[in-house]
Structure formats: structure tokens, C-alpha cells
Design a binder for these strands. Structure first.
Lengths: 191, 191
DNA sequence: ACCGAAAATCCTTTATATTGGAATTTTTCG
DNA sequence: CGAAAAATTCCAATATAAAGGATTTTCGGT
């Protein structure tokens, strides 16, 4: 297993902080949660790595959500402190000349993401036709310039400059450029 | 310890669902997370009660927050099947005439999101000066038109049309419009 | 300082989380 | 359908989470 003693130790400190805030002794929390005082002591000092079930019992005893118990740690990990730049020339693009579409990938792609965002450009009468994404995915389309006709499932709607449309993307869907000017838009995909 | 086999079993189902959605095999997830495939198999079938450290490794590999992994499991609310439209005229905007800034809020705001996106407009020499957001937040700025000077912490960089900058937003940071033309850009905030 | 009494830590034992590889099941493809 | 490949589950061995009791530390009050 990867080394995660650091994060386990932080969890312990966090737990202790919560217990102290609620002015509970190890004994009291042990009684309430069903987790032994010795285990609590070890967890708080980073000497044990509690199971999910133990954390669940603790969260119930403390009147917290699991997510509240672990929320301090959501976004740690090695993140660059400097400004990362992606030059226009280096921006990954997907072009479909046939349909007059260009999709510029603006989001970072160095990890598994649940969000992606793109700048979309479609020539007059061009169309971006998409297969369903994974269950529950939604798309958010904001028109920067021109006008679009959006189809999701069996519904079709027109969006004009500045409008935003939100729709299911786990069914077949399409974006068409209507009018004579090139369509420019921001497309956000949330999985 | 109190009986919590029920909740542990639900966690397993939840994990399997996420893995399948991302089209990963046990082997692939094992490699990425450092958790053995047999352990993954047991967890998914509710036959094992993973430690906090194991969950942490899994959440990193899946690109999720801990809180998303351990979320209340019944919570998949119904999502609208129709296309929701936000007209340009109704788009919420934050304007700071003093500094020549307009921020159009493009993301949905019906729930607490860890992801927000905006269209940003700044007049020449205008500046958008921001206080630190919560720990771990990053911003992604793509220039649609004009040029910007971005400062994050003690670093400053110039971005031109089409460029994207990514930087820490949990420190004081600012975006300034440089050159004579109005700056237009897409700003994505990931918490 | 010296005393309890309460709280936290240490120690031993037991239960089980975790692993690597073998066996089985499921999928793919001719 | 049958064989090969891929994916998952089973199994034996090891590491460690968890419990319960013994020991040490903390901290009032006198």
C-alpha cells in the first residue's frame, strides 16, 4: 500500500480537535461510539489507521456527517505553487472539418476529472453531434457569439448570445450553429 | 464495536458504481491506487471494511474528494430531463464599476458546488483583486480576447489571447487587464 | 510538596484488513 | 461452439486494527 501515514496522522489531530471542542473524554466518546478508548487514543496520535466502519461509528457519536469528519483533507496533495501556463498554440484541439467544429480543451488533463471544459467553435450550419456520456453527466453551454440550436433527448431549444443552456448529456445530444456568424461558446461537462 | 456491516456494504456498492462509470478494471484501479485487486473486490462486495488510509488512496486514484466517496448513499436526487435555459438578460452578474470589472456567473447556483465558472470582462487598466479562497482552491483562466497579467502569491505572468493560466487561489491573487482592448476571459474556480 | 481521582497511554490478545498468487468465472473472437 | 484472454473471486499467509485490562500521567485540593 502507498504510504499515507501523513494523512492518517492529520485525521487523528482533526478528530482530537473535534473531541476537545465538544469537551468529551476518551472514555465518554468510547462509550457513545462503541470504539474502545485505547483505539481512540491510538487514532488521535496517528498510531492507528481506523476502518471505515470505525469512522462511521465515530461520526454518528459526534453528530457529524462522514463528509464533515474528513472534509479537512479534501484537497491536499502535491499541487503546484507556481502559475502553470498553457499557450494558445499548445492548447489541445479536436477538429472536425467535415462538420465545421473545433473544440479547444481548456481543463487540465493530468488526472481523472469529473469536470471538463472547452471552448467550442462551429461554422454556420456546422454541428457537434455527441454520443451519450456516462450516466448522470450534464452539459452547460454558454454562447459567447452567434446562436445555437441544442438538442438533448427529444427536446430542441435555441440559444442566443449570452444565453446558457443546461441539459442531460447521458442521452444523444447535439449542438448546431444557426444564423450566418460563427458560433463561439463555452462548454462545461460535469460527470 | 457496533454493527455497521450495512453501511460498509453500501460503501462497497457505491465504490463499484464509481469504478464502473470510469470504466476501470479492478487491476487498473489497483495499480493506480496501490490497493490490491483482491482487497478492492472484497470491499466492493462488502466483505471488508477498508481503513481510512485505503479510502484515501482510492479517492486520490479516482480523482474524488473523500467526502464524495463517503457521501450519503441515498442522495442521488432527480435531475431535470429537460433543457434548462438561463437567458443572457437573467444571467447573474457582479459588477465593480470602480475597477472596470464584470463577472457573469455561468454555473448553476442551486446547490453548493466545488466548481464554479464565470465569464470575466475587464476594461483596460482595470483589475480584479481577490482574497484567498478556501484551502486547496485553484483557478483556471483562459483569455478569449485582449491580454491579462495574473498574480498569484509572489508570481506574476502575462497571458495573451487563447492562453490559459492555472494557479493557486488560496493565496491573494489578481487579474489585471493590460493593453488597450477590453479583456474577456473564462474563469474556472475549482475548490 | 503529597495525595487521590480521573484521564490518557501502554501491553497483550484476538479479530480482521490486506496481500500475492491460484482458481474460477466471464468475455472475446474465430 | 470452443479456445484464449481478461476480469473477478477464492485461499493461505502476514500485518495490523480493535478490545480489555494494567500502568502511567495529569491535575485538583489540602
Amino acid at each position: 500500500m502507498k504510504d499515507n501515514s501523513e494523512i492518517v496522522s492529520l485525521l487523528g489531530k482533526h478528530l482530537q480537535q473535534i473531541r476537545k471542542e465538544k469537551k468529551l473524554t476518551l472514555e465518554q466518546l468510547a462509550k457513545k461510539s462503541g470504539v474502545s478508548r485505547s483505539m481512540l487514543s491510538q487514532i488521535e496520535r496517528g498510531q492507528a489507521n481506523p476502518t471505515f466502519g470505525t469512522l462511521w461509528n465515530l461520526s454518528r457519536a459526534l453528530g457529524l456527517d462522514m463528509s464533515e469528519l474528513v472534509e479537512e483533507f479534501e484537497s491536499s496533495g502535491p499541487i503546484s505553487g507556481k502559475i502553470d501556463v498553457l499557450l494558445a498554440a499548445d492548447t489541445p484541439r479536436i477538429t472536425n472539418a467535415q462538420n465545421g467544429c473545433t473544440l479547444s480543451i481548456l481543463g487540465p488533463h493530468d488526472q481523472v476529472e469529473q469536470f471538463e471544459w472547452y471552448e467550442l467553435q462551429i461554422e454556420p450550419n456546422g454541428i457537434l453531434d455527441s454520443q451519450p456520456h456516462t450516466q448522470g453527466t450534464r452539459e452547460h453551454l454558454t454562447i459567447l457569439q452567434g446562436a445555437a440550436e441544442v438538442t438533448s433527448g427529444d427536446q430542441t431549444i435555441q440559444l442566443n448570445e449570452g444565453d446558457t443552456g443546461r441539459y442531460k448529456a447521458d442521452v444523444p445530444h447535439a449542438i448546431r450553429c444557426v444564423g450566418e456568424s460563427t458560433l463561439r461558446a463555452i462548454l462545461v461537462v460535469m460527470g
